[in-house]
């Protein structure tokens, strides 16, 4: 199979009824000493067939968000308020059996070191069968046939069903895991850093595969990663997360040319260019805040180059008031006090 490298996908209009919608979601990690608010009032919707990228650095809460959508948060983490809506219905109200259906049939997940989450002493085919029979009434034979189809779908020879995970390369294992995530034809697949541990060439192959599968099967993707340059290539829409909040959300094309939030601009300026002139990278000074005691007002203000105190009124808002997401152009929202005069 040959791969061709092509340009970014066309912008997709988010449908009127999104597949998954988060409304003011708040997730806390509760311990005896302190409570850390990992996700603080996030609203995000993902339309059918849309690839939404969620970018942020370590500790911004993006993985917690993914786990919350998947309803796999374990104590001490818990959803304190807000809703996760699937097809309009609040997932929190699901019964246990409905929740089991929800997980994997409606929404499935591919984790970062997912290739290490394969059982090392079971053959790949058996793991597929196990997973399918846990969710559907299907005979072993039929399940194996389905598993073979899924492997071919992700570009692996059907005969590899009999292989053990260690006999496959890292990239192949990741593709197996993606195949398992697609087995029950979910409407949304959450991918949390699926290619971070892989080499750049394998990463390119996997991304290509995901895009083809997505075009063929029509599922939506929530792609969580720290690599913004990846998202600029593969996502329709990108949301930037910082300190538990979404600070900017825009179609991928707009984000590259018209990023408004200083954090987004800083992030974009942190990637050394592969071609073109080399200027001194600035990065972003300082470090992400401790979420158990975040800065007052705009959480980015200690690191922001526009928080200088020159404009007294603006400065007062920057340190005192949390900025709200506001529309600056169609489909483009920013949470920054500079956007509101």
């Amino acid at each position: 199979m040959t791969l061709t490298l092509d340009v970014r996908p066309d912008v997709v209009e988010a449908g009127a009824s999104p597949v998954v919608a988060l409304q003011d979601l708040v997730v806390d990690y509760v311990s005896r000493l302190r409570t850390t608010r990992a996700v603080d009032g996030v609203s995000l919707s993902i339309g059918a067939g849309e690839i939404v990228g969620l970018a942020g650095e370590s500790g911004c809460g993006k993985s917690t968000l993914g786990n919350a959508v998947m309803q796999v948060l374990r104590p001490p983490a818990r959803i304190s308020s807000g809703r996760v809506l699937f097809d309009g219905k609040d997932v929190a109200g699901h019964s246990r059996s409905e929740l089991r259906r929800y997980r994997w049939r409606n929404v499935s997940m591919v984790f970062q070191s997912a290739m290490n989450s394969l059982n090392p002493v079971m053959r790949v085919g058996d793991q597929f069968v196990d997973m399918m029979r846990a969710h559907e009434r299907v005979s072993k034979k039929d399940a194996l046939v389905r598993a073979g189809e899924l492997l071919e779908l992700v570009g692996i020879d059907r005969r590899r069903l009999r292989a053990y995970p260690h006999q496959l390369s890292g990239g192949m294992r990741q593709r197996v895991v993606i195949g398992m995530a697609l087995a029950l034809r979910p409407e949304l697949v959450i991918m949390d850093e699926p290619t971070t541990a892989l080499d750049v060439v394998v990463q390119r192959e996997i991304l290509q595969q995901v895009r083809e599968l997505q075009a063929e099967l029509g599922f939506a993707v929530l792609f969580i990663t720290h690599d913004l340059s990846l998202l600029l290539e593969i996502a329709h829409r990108i949301a930037i997360m910082y300190a538990g909040e979404i600070v900017e959300e825009a179609p991928a094309a707009s984000l590259r040319t018209d990023a408004r939030h200083p954090y987004t601009v800083g992030l974009l300026g942190s990637f050394p260019p592969l071609h073109g002139p080399i200027e001194r990278l600035t990065g972003i000074p300082g470090a992400p805040p401790d979420l158990s005691a975040p800065p007052s007002g705009c959480r980015f203000h200690p690191r922001c180059q526009y928080c200088t105190g020159e404009d007294v009124a603006l400065h007062a808002r920057q340190v005192g008031e949390r900025p709200k997401l506001q529309v600056v152009s169609p489909g483009h929202r920013v949470a920054c006090h500079r956007e509101t005069p």
Partner: peptide, 13 residues
């Protein structure tokens, strides 16, 4: 390499 601007022609891999 993921690159926001794709300036190289696509090559067959």
């Amino acid at each position: 390499v993921p690159d926001g601007e794709r300036t190289l022609e696509p090559i067959e891999i």
